[in-house]
């Protein structure tokens, strides 16, 4: 190609660029908004879920209890399924509830194999009987969920929190 083609090429490229920017830009706006829509997040309030009777809990003995309610996942609505679980421990007429989701990276927290308290089998975070952080990589203690007793049944506020941060930040 000779140098004499360049002015033509410059003009053609300009048309191409303008057309491309307008066309792609027009397509990009709804496409990108479509793609990022599910990522729109931010703190949400939890949902109160009725669980087990208070009498089924033993003082000082945490019990893993499923939180059953309706679950919406994109286009699916499942009626009365296990949304998650909580460790419930009776303290007199009150109940303490901890999320079973490890605040580190979200694995399921279990009772500690070595004594009272809890531990996470993924990265070996240990928590004491009050849910406080003992050692391991978890940046905070277990997340306490709001719980109240109504008509003899324990109600727990199902709520997720952001993982891996020192502060307890609600999500979803």
């Amino acid at each position: 190609m000779g140098d004499d083609v360049n002015p033509n090429r410059r003009g053609a490229l300009r048309v191409l660029a303008v057309g491309g920017v307008v066309g792609c830009g027009a397509l990009a706006v709804p496409t990108i908004r479509f793609l990022v829509a599910p990522a729109a997040g931010g703190g949400g309030s939890g949902r109160w879920v009725k669980t087990v009777p208070l009498e089924s809990l033993t003082e000082g003995e945490p019990k893993r209890v499923a939180l059953v309610s309706d679950h919406r996942d994109a286009w699916t609505l499942e009626k009365q399924v296990e949304l998650g679980a909580a460790w419930l421990e009776r303290r007199g007429d009150k109940v303490v509830a901890w999320s079973t989701v490890c605040p580190h990276l979200g694995c399921a927290v279990d009772r500690s194999p070595t004594g009272p308290g809890f531990f996470c089998p993924c990265h070996d975070s240990y928590f004491d009987a009050e849910g406080g952080r003992v050692n391991g990589p978890s940046p905070r203690g277990l997340d306490v969920l709001a719980a109240r007793v109504e008509d003899g049944f324990v109600h727990v506020e199902f709520q997720r929190f952001r993982q891996g941060t020192p502060d307890k930040e609600p999500v979803g």
């Binding site: 599910p38 990276l105 979200g106 952001r162 993982q163 999500v171």
Partner: peptide, 25 residues
């Protein structure tokens, strides 16, 4: 959640990967 630990946009990227606040459909 590891991606979610990234500063500022971590949470957003985590939700982009999971398709929402929780991994689902």
């Amino acid at each position: 959640n590891i991606v979610g630990m990234a500063p500022v946009i971590g949470g957003w990227i985590g939700r982009m990967i999971s398709g929402g606040p929780e991994l689902g459909a």
